[in-house]
Design a protein around this nucleic acid. Structure first.
Lengths: 214, 214
DNA sequence: GAAAACCTAGCGAGCACTTAGTAAGTTTCG
DNA sequence: CGAAACTTACTAAGTGCTCGCTAGGTTTTC
């Protein structure tokens, strides 16, 4: 879906015929490449998907893609950055609309659940990029640090640490939250109809209710 | 470690010189290939690691590996089966020694934590093999089904379902347990010194204590 | 006429796997 | 015991394929 973004429906042979201005066409192509790359990466990961695969799906050649993104690695980072930015914006909007920090996080999770490709994208690429030297390695390392920092903050705002059992603090709870979200996503990918990821995290928050701030 | 398994320390140039019987040498080689493959797969996954990489590390040629395993996919399955079998045996032994089912599971987790390669192996390969057509796909699908079945059983033996809050049953708790174990493993891979995986699962069980059988 | 949006062609490297061969060790049998 | 028959454990060389990326050109719009 949203595949044939703003491209005219005419025969691909007369490729020169622009939909409108060349600039607008370029912007639309860039979008199409990003969307297609995200879709294919989410299924096969970065390494197994070739530029030719993406180009084929978009309807241009390998070299055509490299006109927009200098290297395959640059394309990956562009996909990651864009999708992550959307997540952050969504969570902040929800918080500004008065939802509790942790609730806002879970609702953003639920939003992503409606787009399985997105969940899959991060599960697959996170694992693949654990290898040092992988195109996405440093990006994911930094993301993990940022996520933990953010999550600890969200937990501290919502949970009363002094009520928690011995040995359990905000950092442990934050680790649980992120681990759960990721781990459930990883299982979900194998059987996308079996269970709801966000629902399980929501139920998990019920377990924490006795320890929450009033 | 355990790399030069039972191979004589002489120069590799006189390759013909057997360590003892040819049969014994073959068995040792097979072991060395399995260990090396497991080690390399755990870092780079299946797709990025080539037969040449493994062969190089073992000290033979690509074709030498295919003498023992007919295809690269067969090698992967051999690694997976062997490692998983060890896990199952370890858990059953612990249960027979009187540990509670869930405790036995967590202790086996802790045991694996002492071998980060093993954790990494399953995290990386599980993600990679979500793609249909991947050499390990069907194996992991079946493993997920088996794991859930087993885990639901372990939870039912340990937790009193009637005490659980509304909407939470053994299946949900089992999903939490597996999701947590996998998700924490995935994060751990990025920062192997930062936190203990099994310890976080142990603390999680503390949260469940009010709902356990007497 | 300059820049953007492509395409065709191809390079050099790497991939899993095959084929054909060799040098040892093991078994069989006179 | 010892030679022939066979098996095991490999190697060297190559097959056909795919990969990311480059160089250089052509068309289309501003």
């Amino acid at each position: 879906m949203t595949k044939d973004t703003a491209l005219d429906g005419e025969s691909t042979k007369q490729r020169g015929r622009a939909g409108r201005s060349t600039q607008a066409r370029g912007i639309a192509r860039r979008r199409a490449i990003l969307d297609t790359a995200m879709s294919l990466f989410s299924v096969g990961g970065f390494n197994t998907v070739s530029l030719a695969d993406i180009a084929n799906e978009v309807g241009i050649t390998q070299a055509g893609i490299l006109h927009y993104f200098p290297t395959k690695a640059a394309l990956l980072l562009a996909v990651l950055q864009e999708r992550e930015a959307r997540n952050v914006v969504s969570r902040k909007e929800r918080q500004e609309h008065g939802e509790s920090p942790l609730a806002a996080y879970v609702e953003t999770l639920a939003e992503n659940d409606r787009n399985p490709e997105l969940v899959q994208l991060f599960v697959i690429l996170a694992a693949e990029s654990t290898a040092e030297g992988h195109a996405g390695h440093e990006w994911f390392v930094q993301r993990n640090i940022d996520l933990m920092k953010t999550m600890i903050g969200l937990v501290q705002e919502t949970v009363d640490e002094s009520k928690l059992p011995d040995g359990i603090d905000a950092e442990v709870v934050a680790r649980w939250m992120l681990g759960l979200a990721h781990g459930l996503g990883a299982q979900w990918v194998f059987d996308t109809s079996a269970f709801a990821r966000a629902e399980h995290v929501r139920l998990f928050l019920r377990l924490l209710e006795p320890y929450m701030r009033p």
